[in-house]
Simulated scan of single mutants.
Amino acid sequence: MDTIVIGGGQSGLAAARTLLDAGLTPVLLEAADQTTGSWPRYYDSLTLFSPARYSSLPGMPFPGDPDRYPHRDEVAAYLARYADHLDAEIRTGTRVTAVQAGEDGFAVRTADGTTFTAPSVIAASGSFTNPYMPVLQGQADFTGEILHAAGYSAPAPYAGKRIIVVGAGNSAVQIAYELADVASVTLATRKPIRFVDQRPLGKDLHFWFTVTGFDRFPARLVSSPPGAPVLDEGIYRRALRQGRMDRRPMFTRFDGDEVVWADGSREPVDVVLLATGYRPHLDYLDGLGALDETGYPRHTQGLSLTHPGLGFLGLEWQRTPSSNTLRGVGRDARYLTRKLKNHLGVRHSRAGV
């Protein structure tokens, strides 16, 4: 094999396809029993923020009405079909525990004791299993429930409760909006929520991203935004105006069963739901020296700065604003494949192959 791809979600599948198209031989290792990434584990009502026509991986259009916003389960089914059409070795139920580097490339060890070797590796394991959980003052003594959005499925279990959703992104607002059907909900944010019209001039925002070239704009030439904007056709802003839910500055601390707000007021709370994002899940690279002290890859545009032949895929703002999305990961996969193929060519020429 030429390349070991770690992770069988959208990023790993895109990598496998572009490697095959380049004449390389990948093997894809996926810890779960299916190649659907984290999609089946997201909250039940999740829909894509981009229409189907802009939500495809290389070589297979997303089926159905191109202008609809596909549901979570449709995305999972699409990824499963995508994997079925790949002429690549895919091993599910194969959790990677460590990657080691040597003169001949990389040794990838799995939980069942198997070792795979190859001259190049792509880490495409995503971030859903590594939710970011900020530690808040007084949290250890809070008597209510604290959970991350990764552990939230549906509103029914929270009926009648007082809930604070922490976060100002799409997921935070979507979850708060649906919880407001059954509970009293506040969005707690450090800065005001930045709403963006989902359909300016009657066209979905992703149409304008495409025609203006924004989706391909190099991330190195623009600063990543201080929090993602919330795409809205008006329902979320209207809900806030009408008091269906409210937004307040972030509370300062917990105190028993209460939270203390920035103005000094306090109130009992049943649930605090943290929609605070995720971090890359790359613990299998610990000890390799490829990560910084926070666990983030040392890379430029997905290429490791420490280990030639090691690549990353699916990172936020890896190369462009759309790098970690269905619509953008394919472009990054083609770029990474070209670079790794060049690396493999250099290795072969030095070896006299």
Rank of each mutant, 00 (worst) to 15 (best):
R248C: 10
P249R: 11
P249G: 13
P249Q: 11
M250L: 15
M250T: 04
T252N: 06
R253S: 12
F254E: 13
G256E: 09
E258D: 15
E258F: 09
V259G: 02
V259C: 03
V259T: 10
V260W: 04
D263I: 11
D263S: 06
D263F: 11
G264V: 02
S265L: 12
S265N: 11
S265K: 13
R266F: 04
E267L: 10
E267M: 09
E267D: 13
V269S: 04
L273T: 08
L273E: 09
T276N: 06
G277T: 02
R279G: 00
P280S: 05
P280R: 05
H281S: 14
L282Y: 12
D283A: 13
D283W: 13
L285F: 10
L285N: 06
D286W: 05
L291I: 02
D292K: 00
T294W: 00
T294I: 00
G295L: 01
P297D: 00
P297I: 00
R298V: 07
R298S: 04
H299W: 01
T300P: 01
T300R: 14
Q301C: 06
G302F: 05
G302A: 04
S304D: 04
S304L: 07
L305Y: 00
L305H: 01
H307N: 06
H307I: 09
P308F: 03
G309L: 11
L310P: 01
